[in-house]
């Protein structure tokens, strides 16, 4: 089997596992949809004066596209790896001729497939039911999503190495994630110049969220690449990948 065929082979079985697992399918897939419907409905008539008076949902829907990708990549990957390591599944797989890159390709590919489905679904629901106007600058949106997927998959692998065992996985994973989501403008823009914004600016979430919003911003012009934000996401991607690769372990540390 050549490399591409092997990667597709792995993604297929990861997909089967993913959709059959109620925990992963709920927390990383249904959760973003639930957030979308609840808050978009509650704030259907709200507007954001700070962003030139655009409707709340024109801002919120791209935020949920970003949030969906972060759950499908970061939350899903870090939890899955921690659980499989603890159960001995990684060690078992390591004893077969499957190359490590192919195993990762399967898991990352699975996260990307889920992210793409979520992005399309969330955008479509936003446009059909909540009056969101279609994104301009599709290339900018695709670049933002691709860089975001790389960054949050790498972060998922990196954070999985900090999780001591499967029981601790949801706590460790969400302990970093949710506070950052709330201060990173995912649900509501963070006031410019505030302390919270300065904290959030250190992390990739707010930059990723802005780079997904840029193509949806009706007041923006040009190609809509949020270059500064994309650069920070890329730096985090590289740093997380280095940490993830260096610290990755196949076995639980019990000895």
């Amino acid at each position: 089997m050549n490399a591409a065929a092997l990667a597709v082979h792995q993604v297929r079985y990861e997909q089967k596992s993913y959709w059959r697992n109620p925990a992963s399918a709920f927390f990383s897939f249904a959760f973003p949809i639930l957030f979308l419907v609840i808050f978009a409905t509650l704030n259907a008539s709200a507007h954001l004066p700070d962003l030139g008076g655009i409707s709340y949902n024109q801002y919120y829907v791209p935020g949920i596209v970003a949030f969906g990708l972060m759950s499908a990549c970061y939350t899903n990957l870090s939890t899955t790896i921690a659980i499989r390591r603890d159960a001995g599944i990684l060690k078992r797989l390591r004893s077969t001729p499957l190359p490590p890159w192919a195993m990762f390709a399967g898991m990352v590919g699975n996260s990307v497939v889920v992210s793409v489905i979520l992005a399309i679904l969330v955008s479509a629901v936003g446009m059909l039911f909540y009056g969101v106007s279609a994104p301009h600058g599709i290339p900018a949106l695709l670049v933002a999503l691709a860089l975001g997927a790389a960054c949050f998959c790498a972060l998922g692998v990196a954070v999985s190495t900090l999780i001591p065992n499967a029981d601790a996985a949801p706590a460790v994973v969400n302990f970093v994630f949710f506070p950052l989501v709330f201060i990173s403008g995912t649900f509501y823009p963070v006031p410019k110049g505030s302390v919270l914004e300065r904290i959030a600016n250190v992390f990739p979430l707010v930059h990723f969220t802005r780079s997904v919003f840029a193509p949806f911003d009706p007041h923006a012009t040009g190609a809509r690449f949020a270059s500064h934000d994309l650069l920070i996401v890329a730096v985090w991607a590289v740093a997380a990948a280095i940490v993830g690769v260096r610290r990755f372990r196949w076995e639980p540390s019990r000895r």
């Binding site: 079985y13 089967k16 697992n21 004893s95």
Partner: peptide, 22 residues
């Protein structure tokens, strides 16, 4: 290995078909 460890949500023949390809 001493401890059994197989992906819980795949079927018997799926897991075997997946690994056979290696």
């Amino acid at each position: 290995l001493q401890e059994t460890a197989v992906e819980p949500y795949l079927t018997v023949s799926e897991v075997l078909r997946r690994n056979a390809a290696y």
